[in-house]
Design a protein around this nucleic acid. Sequence first.
DNA 1: CTGCCGCTGTACGGTACCGTACGGGCGACG
DNA 2: CGTCGCCCGTACGGTACCGTACAGCGGCAG
Lengths: 244, 244
Amino acid sequence: MAPRSRLQFNNVLLSKLTADDVACLQPFERAQLARDQVLVDPHTPIASVFFLESGIASVHEVLRDGSRVGVGIIGFEGMTGWSVLLGCDRSPHEAIIAIGGGGALSIPTERLLRACSDRPGLNALFLRYVQYFMSQMARTITSNLRDPIERRLARWLLMNHDRLGGDEIHLTHDQLGVMLGVRRASVTDTLHILEGERLIRSTRGVIVISDRPGLEAFAGETYGVAEAEYVRVIGPFAGLGAVH
Amino acid sequence: MAPRSRLQFNNVLLSKLTADDVACLQPFERAQLARDQVLVDPHTPIASVFFLESGIASVHEVLRDGSRVGVGIIGFEGMTGWSVLLGCDRSPHEAIIAIGGGGALSIPTERLLRACSDRPGLNALFLRYVQYFMSQMARTITSNLRDPIERRLARWLLMNHDRLGGDEIHLTHDQLGVMLGVRRASVTDTLHILEGERLIRSTRGVIVISDRPGLEAFAGETYGVAEAEYVRVIGPFAGLGAVH
DNA sequence: CTGCCGCTGTACGGTACCGTACGGGCGACG
DNA sequence: CGTCGCCCGTACGGTACCGTACAGCGGCAG
């Protein structure tokens, strides 16, 4: 197997690349991401793609009345702007920073595309991430249809937890409402339920995961399938799929 | 612009290819598809991909208890098994014939992949279809969350109508229930509502679209966005996006 | 200190769904 | 010609949500 990149990136995709592949992408521009920063503007040419190193971006559909519905989540395991790899210069969806303060590596679309055409391994890895993202979306469809809010919330918290360093998740109830497609008030109520089960603690703007295994049990079938797909097509990350 | 295929296929993707690209894919195997025939078996290597020429396949998540949830629809505008183009030999989802009696062209995965690596134009077209399919899924997420069943049903009927020759849709209420993620009984009730609005007529096993513009108006924002994306990335088909 | 704004808690009636169930018609097959 | 399996119609109570609304609390700016 080819040698892995020596430069350590905190982005999982980049860390799976060979040093040669990484060299072909260089230089990256480092960016510090603030909450609500837009990484992909819908229906607008994508100038750069971002590889997050920390923090969370969420992917939204934007409706005509300006309201938003969450369709996916991206952290240091992924990237934004994959549409350009599918031969499209833009995306119908918005990618926006939900949890800021983190860093990211960005690269102009043009250079990414050139690198991908020169080095098939690059392209292949990123396309497998697209495969994973479709699994995530599919699971969101079924979870939204079949699960009560508590379970969907548990799933969403777990997905955030996977992508963050510690046990603290800095999200407001409003943001969670958008991601889950429910009222802000429903989020409040539901957080209290999870808190009553001693799975989390919740204070103003912060949710603390206090019983991760319990949360997984609570989420049931809704969490785990897409994550297994990630491990299968990309590889383990942050404890997920780690050797036991 | 390069010449298009002279051999007329009833599959939109194939019809957009140049004759040289098509030659590279040949020979196709022609298949007649019966209802409930499985085109993609979840978590199983994909031996062949199918380009439908008529009929409808639906894409499902399969849950542990064996129940299914619809996440997408494929007709003569698309293909099954795109996972292999994303570098994965299998898919977590099932593709199964919902409306049979139609034909399809199939090609072994291996030959497809060889052709795609020889001819970038092939690969690019199919990847743009993946981009469209993600739009379709995203729209399903928001529609399931925000729209009452009537509107979701209207959307689903329109999507079927786009992919069929006439105004008759041969689907049972059960099948629609799976696609929409609702009870069979809810489908029955909702069909009566649409019938009351004189948008459709419904008899045993058959739904007839009698007022397509009315149905579009009824569906509202839920229908049209993903379809526009198809026209943008692939091109017009069957009246959709046709020059006016 | 004061005011304001963003975030959270809570309440209330309303309704669009669900699970379940049962009966009846149509078509196929013996 | 009877019977069986798939479809469809309809009913019923139950509940998990929604839209809306309002009040309290925390922190930041002035």
